[in-house]
């Protein structure tokens, strides 16, 4: 554990912090939409750690190892598609039940939508 605190590892530490903040949001935040944002923060942090690994792998005239970089690009696109699916599920849940958060009492469908 003797690696010096270089600017590159600084970004890795920042990424670790982002994962923690995002995880905390996903576990505790009452708003479901905010949990989706937290999930994206976790992703951003993990990608940054990958970026550090890519940057440290600079060799052969490249400024970074292209393999982790390509993995991150794939990861960003997949994270987006997961986000889109989660948001669509959340909108449907809201349309059907009026719920948008994890508070103890959700407004019932009849309350927010009028009696059937």
């Amino acid at each position: 554990m003797t690696a010096a605190l270089t600017p590159t590892t600084l970004f890795g530490l920042g990424g670790a912090a982002l994962v923690g903040i995002g995880l905390f949001m996903v576990i505790t935040h009452p708003s479901l939409l905010r949990r989706v944002v937290g999930f994206n923060l976790i992703g951003a942090g993990i990608f940054l750690v990958f970026g550090v690994i890519a940057r440290r792998g600079a060799a052969a005239g490249f400024a970074g190892d292209p393999v982790p970089q390509a993995l991150v690009i794939t990861g960003i696109v997949v994270a987006f598609s997961a986000t889109a699916l989660a948001v669509a599920l959340l909108r449907r849940l809201f349309d059907l039940t009026g719920r948008r958060d994890f508070d103890s009492e959700a407004p019932s469908a009849s309350q927010s939508r009028g009696e059937p």
Partner: peptide, 30 residues
């Protein structure tokens, strides 16, 4: 939850600081 999140952050930070030197790389193969 805060403690668990902080533990994950600390673990990741340790992993970042403990990355091997010289770093493994596929750049020459690429």
């Amino acid at each position: 939850a805060a403690l668990a999140s902080a533990a994950v952050t600390a673990g990741l930070a340790l992993a970042v600081l403990a990355l091997p030197t010289p770093a493994p790389t596929l750049a020459p193969v690429a």
